Amino acid sequence: MRTTTILELAVCTVTDKPAAEEARRSAMAAVRTYAGFVSWRALTALEQGDMIADLVEWADKASADAAAAKVQVDPAFAPYMSAISGVTLMQHFETQDTI
């Protein structure tokens, strides 16, 4: 049986990577309670010192959209949002195949 989920990829720049990563851990703890949340992989660029990325998996697009609205008002996300100086990419992808 094939299960389709939504992957949200956010690639961002930060001015203080250690502070951003600490704030991200708090945000990750909060999002675990969001409806439709599946997983969150926190990524840190090796070649570009000010770049981080988040790969968040949602059960469906409606859950991803609801979460996008919720993080704007969730106090647990405020420090992480403040730590981000720029967004290079923010996109949702439907899973196709996994090996």
Rank of each mutant, 00 (worst) to 15 (best):
G36V: 13
Q48A: 13
I84E: 04
A45Y: 05
Q72C: 05
R41C: 01
A53R: 04
E21F: 01
A45H: 04
A83T: 00
Y80E: 08
L89K: 07
R32K: 15
V56F: 06
V73G: 03
V87C: 02
E57M: 14
I84W: 06
D16A: 08
A53L: 10
T15V: 05
T88I: 15
V31P: 01
A45V: 11
P75S: 14
A29E: 15
T88Q: 14
T3Q: 13
T5E: 09
I52A: 11
T95Y: 00
R24T: 11
E94R: 11
S39R: 11
S85E: 08
T33H: 12
Q91F: 00
D74M: 02
E8L: 05
G86K: 08
P75E: 11
Q96S: 11
Q72K: 13
G86T: 06
A29V: 10
L9V: 15
S85T: 11
W40L: 15
E22M: 06
V31K: 01
T98H: 13
V38K: 15
D65P: 11
A53S: 14
L89Q: 09
T15W: 02
V73L: 07
F37H: 15
S26T: 15
T95D: 02
S82L: 08
E57L: 14
P18T: 06
T95H: 01
E94V: 12
P75D: 11
A76M: 05
F77M: 12
V11M: 00
Q72N: 05
I84K: 02
A83M: 00
E57G: 14
L89D: 04
C12Q: 12
A29F: 00
V71Y: 03
R41V: 06
T5P: 03
V71S: 06
I84V: 15
C12H: 09
M51Q: 13
H92P: 09
R41W: 00
F77H: 03
A42N: 10
F93C: 12
A27G: 13
M90Q: 08
A67R: 00
L55N: 09
S82V: 02
R25I: 07
T44Q: 02
L89C: 06
D50L: 10
W40P: 03
A10N: 13
V56Q: 10
Q48F: 03
A27T: 13
V38W: 06
Q72M: 14
E8Q: 13
E47D: 13
A83L: 00
R32L: 15
S85L: 08
V38C: 14
A68S: 11
M1A: 15
